[in-house]
Simulated assay, not measured.
Amino acid sequence: MSDLLERLRGRGWRLTSQRRVVAEVLDGDHVHLTADEVHSRAVERLPEISRATVYNTLGELVCLGEVLEVATDGRAKRYDPNAHRPHQHLVCSGCGAIRDVHPQGDPLAGLPQGERFGFVLSGAEITYRGLCPECADRG
């Protein structure tokens, strides 16, 4: 389970009922929802929450560094609350499902010095692709 709500409280971020509901919807392991999915789930908990409030709250959470914005292959952006634990993503090429994965080793070490072109590396984003079990069974 992610600790998004706990992190936000620790920052002193004002948790209005709308912000709290968005954070609750995002909280959990392997949560990679689109803004529309966040809105749909938030409305179930707080019927009066607007789409604009959800989008604004997601933008604030990304700016705070508490949620990652994940974009894959031209699909809708997804929001990942696992912003403080190093991980990579495994994406289904069929349905677009995303899972957090934790490969061993330093991903920065995989890029040889000759391929760095003088860059001082600060991070790496690696996306693994394949078919989830459901899509693989259909194919």
Rank of each mutant, 00 (worst) to 15 (best):
C63H: 05
G110F: 07
H89C: 14
V22H: 09
L111R: 01
V120S: 02
E6N: 00
V91L: 09
N82Q: 10
A124H: 09
L108N: 05
A23C: 04
A71Y: 03
L8M: 01
V31Q: 04
Y55F: 02
A97W: 12
L8W: 09
G110D: 01
A76V: 06
G28W: 15
L4I: 06
G74Q: 13
G139N: 13
T16L: 14
D73E: 15
M1E: 14
H39A: 05
V31H: 08
T53Y: 09
G94N: 15
H32D: 09
L5V: 05
G59Q: 04
V101F: 11
Q88V: 00
V101S: 05
Y79C: 05
P107E: 00
L111V: 02
G74S: 10
G130P: 04
E125L: 01
G110S: 02
F117V: 09
D27N: 13
R138H: 11
V25Q: 13
S17P: 14
H39Q: 06
E66A: 15
A71W: 11
A52E: 15
G12S: 09
S17N: 11
E44F: 03
R129H: 11
G123Y: 08
R116C: 11
D29T: 12
G65E: 01
L58W: 04
R129L: 06
T53A: 05
G139P: 08
D106S: 02
L58N: 07
L61F: 06
A136S: 12
Q18E: 14
L46G: 12
L26E: 01
Y128D: 15
R41E: 12
T127K: 13
P107R: 00
A76P: 09
G130Q: 12
Q113T: 08
S122D: 03
A109S: 04
P103H: 07
